[in-house]
Design a protein around this nucleic acid. Sequence first.
DNA 1: ATTGCTTATCGCAAATTTACGATTGGCTTT
DNA 2: AAAGCCAATCGTAAATTTGCGATAAGCAAT
Lengths: 101, 101
Amino acid sequence: MKRTIETITYQQNTKVLATFAKALAHPTRIAILKHLENQSCCFTGDLVNVFPLAQSTISQHLKELKKAGLIQGELKPPKIKYCINTENWEKAKSLFQQFFD
Amino acid sequence: MKRTIETITYQQNTKVLATFAKALAHPTRIAILKHLENQSCCFTGDLVNVFPLAQSTISQHLKELKKAGLIQGELKPPKIKYCINTENWEKAKSLFQQFFD
DNA sequence: ATTGCTTATCGCAAATTTACGATTGGCTTT
DNA sequence: AAAGCCAATCGTAAATTTGCGATAAGCAAT
């Protein structure tokens, strides 16, 4: 990306909010989260049936959401049950809330 | 991006929310918007002094924010005054609000 | 008409994202 | 030990994003 000037340092909240926003920056991920809000939880396979996307693609989106901390996976062999990470969800909620006033 | 399956159609709100989220998905853009919230308005040049980024880079971020509808520019020759687009700001606010419940 | 100031746009390079199919890995059950 | 399921990861390709410097464009004042 060719950064010649020194790296910028942002406020912690700014960075965190940007991270959450990035996780929400794709319609599929929004849709997945909406699905999780309704169902409260679901398996990867369920989503593959809901969305016309390859299993690997769904898995990648889940990885993104997990990286942002918005969801968490629980081993339920042979499946994996994904749920919303309530703590971080509330964190995101309040960050967006206070950002928009 | 290699889409073999038919293009997905998302709910309108899902797409719009993702667009807003994408605009917020970079710390610099969050910081610009925070700046605009405080100052209510500002010129491109102001931001160039605030952030250690090239003028062209700032301009690009402003373009992104404008594309998402979160800000609007007003000609104030020889400068351009950027303000928050209140209507869309409220739209975004309510979309995030209802998304997080 | 020329100069000066401010901002947008162009051209490029590197990094990241999104998507797919194919393969691997983990855990049960046989 | 082998077979079966489900989900993650790998490898690849195309598109998009982010950043810069350089150049162009718009408008005011000289």
